[in-house]
Design a protein around this nucleic acid. Structure first.
Lengths: 211, 211
DNA sequence: TGGGTCATGTAATAGGTTACATGATTGC
DNA sequence: GCAATCATGTAACCTATTACATGACCCA
């Protein structure tokens, strides 16, 4: 049987925390792996139905427990086997699509200063990201019998921090190189001062967590 | 009018090299921005038709010139304006989906050694990537009247190198941390020796360039 | 009794890959 | 003449996001 990545996210989450509902899963994704993965309800609920039908997960402790009208799920043995098989298979690279680099690559055609503005924007977003990662890190530890998942969680967190930090370092040197290559508006001043209030609202509606 | 990213890639490429055909564009994408962007024919040809209909690009020097049966395109003034407008707008973050980190995050459920295997795989791919980037870099320079696009190209290349290098550095330390956390098969030997011939063929059919 | 958020789900749509079909040109 | 590659295009399919619809529960 073929499954999409969403199904494996569900199996993985249930291997860590049995009893999660679809709603919980969305929250968990945003809160703990949001910096490298996203899921929407439109993916999760159909996948839950599918996995249930295939016997890889099962309904558990229906609403009657505590809150009403919410459906928890648990892994079946078949589900756990399926997850393990997937974990053993080499990963796929996602098709790369970085719009920031695309705009930078074509920036010669843009108005002077546009590249510098994108660079600043990029650095801002990375700073926010680094902040979010540190918050996650602070919320992870402190378990008396040490959580067996923790080493792996810390590795992925470390990856996020390492790459974000590298991006910030690159950004700084890139700004300097740009200033040398683009005489810009004022030759000696690095960048125009008044650049507040960039419009970011419309792109922030969905998929929480990141940035 | 709303366009997808493919359309802007086309406009951008034509702003650099007028006369390119759809086939050329696919090649150019693979060869020069393949490490952060991909396009398939199924996207390019419909977009060319659309853009022509909107008057943003125009057919130029049809096949009769040199080779037969190939259609070149050039930017119109409207097309150049459209490209500039897009370049001035803040970029969108792509939805993050890193399957490697996903498998690492859930690795507690996997067979012992699986995480280490993914890590080695990851490092191999990054080494190949770094190699590809160096090849691109070597092919870029050497223009007597310096190419005005070059500063931007070098910035994006530098980004690729910086991030790939950071990923490699993280990988090395991650392997050490893993070895400490996972007793693995043999406690003193880092990783099992015989790991040749991972199956990579089936996932490499399409979208050239990268990794 | 009214607002917020918990909770589940579906339909419309967008965006993109893959496989296929077709034919010209080039080099041997 | 044959294979490889140049070159264009289309159709089927898959994945995923967004917006919408619905209703329960909580608390003030």
């Amino acid at each position: 049987m073929k499954h999409n990545a969403t199904s494996y996210v569900i199996l993985g989450l249930l291997s860590i925390e049995p009893g999660h509902s679809g709603y919980d899963m969305r929250k968990a994704v945003q809160g703990s792996i949001g910096y490298f993965w996203g899921e929407s309800y439109g993916q999760i609920y159909p996948a839950l139905k599918l996995l249930t039908g295939e016997g890889l997960i099962a309904r558990s402790g229906t609403g009657s427990n505590g809150r009403k009208r919410r459906q928890g799920y648990v892994l079946t043995e078949a589900g756990r086997r399926c997850l393990r098989e997937w974990l053993a298979v080499p990963f796929h690279d996602e098709p790369p699509r970085n719009e920031f680099l695309l705009k930078l690559f074509f920036a010669r055609e843009a108005a002077p200063g546009a590249a510098a503005a994108h660079l600043r924007d990029f650095e801002e977003r990375n700073l926010r990201m680094l902040d979010a990662l540190k918050k996650i890190e602070a919320s992870v530890p402190a378990d008396k019998p040490p959580n067996p998942h923790q080493p792996y969680w810390l590795l992925t967190l470390g990856f996020g921090k390492a790459l974000t930090t590298a991006a910030l370092a690159w950004g700084e040197s890139a700004r300097a190189e740009l200033a040398a290559a683009e005489p810009s508006t004022a030759p000696s001043a690095r960048v125009p001062k008044k650049r507040a209030a960039r419009k970011t609202a419309s792109s922030r509606k969905h998929r929480g967590g990141k940035h």
